[in-house]
Computed example of a mutant assay.
Amino acid sequence: MYLKKPLWSDALKKADSDAGAGGASPEAERDSPLAVVEELVGLLTKQRVYREVTLALRTGLRDARAEFSFLRVRGLRSLLKFLRSVSESDTTIELFALSQSVRELQVVPVLFQHSLKDAEEGNVASLDHIFAVEPLKITSPSTDAEAALALRVLEGCCLLHTESTILAHQHKAIPVLMNILSTRGVLEQGACLDALISIMLDSSANQTLNRAVESRKLQSS
């Protein structure tokens, strides 16, 4: 996600400044070969950044889906670092939002299916799988550090991408987070409160409350 400065960028800027100093008209500058080259370079750079976005997501999500908690922690740390770098640029935020339209690159469902899943859901109900042909796949429960990281990743996704908030509600985010608040430790509770705020920012109930407050302010004035 940290791109090196292209070697030709300084040359393009110098040529652009020279053309501007020459007093050329805006129409001529737009149709000039330099403008065409700059447009092509910008398009190629955007495609390159999008490939890096998808690669970072695939790498982080692969570990976040792992059976072992330490691998999921590694994936969540990678995703959190990725989201922090994405937030530094409007272009990368736009590309991240574009990537979340692809099902296998969506972050929020993976969080609720693995790291934020209730430990009781993974309990083995019977031993019938011992006599079956295929062994039962057992996933290690999430640790406190893993749950806290997952909540931070959830917060980042909801702040950067509105559709991620909708996905969170589809996975019953509010009941899940309220359960974490009541059963987990201090580390998870702090991250959980931040995640709740990020989810509720664009909720319909919150928007209705804001409109009611604004209406009261207008009436009082």
Rank of each mutant, 00 (worst) to 15 (best):
residue 101 S to E: 12
residue 105 L to R: 03
residue 137 K to Y: 11
residue 60 G to K: 01
residue 115 S to M: 00
residue 124 V to A: 07
residue 151 L to E: 06
residue 42 G to M: 03
residue 140 S to I: 09
residue 60 G to A: 00
residue 87 S to M: 06
residue 49 V to M: 12
residue 156 G to W: 02
residue 84 R to A: 08
residue 71 L to W: 13
residue 93 I to F: 05
residue 55 L to Y: 09
residue 117 K to C: 09
residue 165 T to D: 04
residue 163 E to D: 10
residue 79 L to I: 00
residue 125 A to Q: 13
residue 166 I to Y: 15
residue 134 E to K: 15
residue 92 T to P: 03
residue 130 I to S: 04
residue 160 L to D: 02
residue 93 I to L: 04
residue 85 S to V: 15
residue 96 F to M: 02
residue 62 R to E: 14
residue 41 V to P: 06
residue 129 H to Y: 12
residue 121 E to W: 07
residue 168 A to T: 01
residue 176 V to G: 01
residue 76 L to A: 00
residue 74 R to S: 13
residue 122 G to T: 15
residue 127 L to P: 07
residue 84 R to N: 10
residue 120 E to L: 11
residue 57 L to K: 01
residue 160 L to E: 04
residue 96 F to R: 01
residue 84 R to Q: 13
residue 130 I to R: 11
residue 152 R to W: 08
residue 89 S to E: 08
residue 97 A to K: 13
residue 86 V to P: 05
residue 101 S to N: 13
residue 157 C to D: 05
residue 68 F to I: 14
residue 87 S to T: 06
residue 47 Q to W: 13
residue 61 L to C: 01
residue 111 L to Q: 05
residue 112 F to N: 01
residue 100 Q to K: 03
residue 113 Q to G: 10
residue 126 S to N: 14
residue 130 I to N: 08
residue 161 H to I: 02
residue 62 R to G: 10
residue 139 T to N: 15
residue 174 I to F: 05
residue 162 T to G: 14
residue 176 V to L: 08
residue 133 V to R: 12
residue 82 F to N: 02
residue 62 R to M: 14
residue 57 L to C: 06
residue 94 E to L: 14
residue 93 I to T: 07
residue 117 K to S: 09
residue 173 A to R: 03
residue 72 R to K: 06
residue 136 L to I: 07
residue 103 R to G: 09
residue 90 D to W: 09
residue 166 I to E: 15
residue 56 A to D: 02
residue 171 H to C: 09
residue 112 F to M: 05
residue 114 H to R: 11
residue 146 E to C: 06
residue 55 L to F: 11
residue 163 E to P: 06
residue 94 E to P: 07
residue 145 A to W: 05
residue 112 F to H: 04
residue 63 D to R: 13
residue 100 Q to T: 02
residue 60 G to H: 00
residue 119 A to I: 14
residue 65 R to I: 01
residue 81 K to M: 09
residue 119 A to K: 15
residue 43 L to C: 14
residue 77 R to E: 09
residue 41 V to E: 05
residue 52 E to C: 10
residue 45 T to Q: 10
residue 67 E to S: 14
residue 54 T to V: 08
residue 152 R to L: 11
residue 91 T to V: 15
residue 171 H to M: 08
residue 76 L to S: 02
residue 160 L to Q: 00
residue 42 G to F: 06
residue 170 Q to Y: 07
residue 144 D to Q: 15
residue 127 L to F: 09
residue 136 L to Q: 14
residue 123 N to A: 15
residue 75 G to F: 02
residue 44 L to V: 12
